[in-house]
């Protein structure tokens, strides 16, 4: 499983999807978040592996849903 964390929410998905697909599955716009894994920025085509924990950082500061 992979875990995505955005502000005070989190989602868990099966491994094997791209960062972009995972962001979309969270209901977020990939234009508005950056993905950070183990403290490093990762690109949207990165395949998520089992055990990955990805922090999504809001691009627009403030009230983005």
């Amino acid at each position: 499983m992979v875990k995505l964390i955005y502000r005070n929410k989190s989602w868990e998905f099966a491994a094997g999807m791209t960062v972009r697909d995972a962001i979309l599955k969270c209901g977020l716009n990939p234009e508005q978040v950056l993905a950070v894994r183990a403290g490093k920025l990762i690109n949207e085509a990165t395949l998520l592996k089992d055990g990955d924990e990805v922090k999504l950082v809001a691009v627009i500061s403030g009230g983005v849903r």
């Binding site: 234009e31 508005q32 950056l34 950070v36 920025l41 950082v57 691009v59």
Partner: peptide
């Protein structure tokens, strides 16, 4: 804005 945030990170 995405690039500006990425630069800071």
């Amino acid at each position: 804005e995405r690039e500006s945030a990425a630069y800071a990170l």
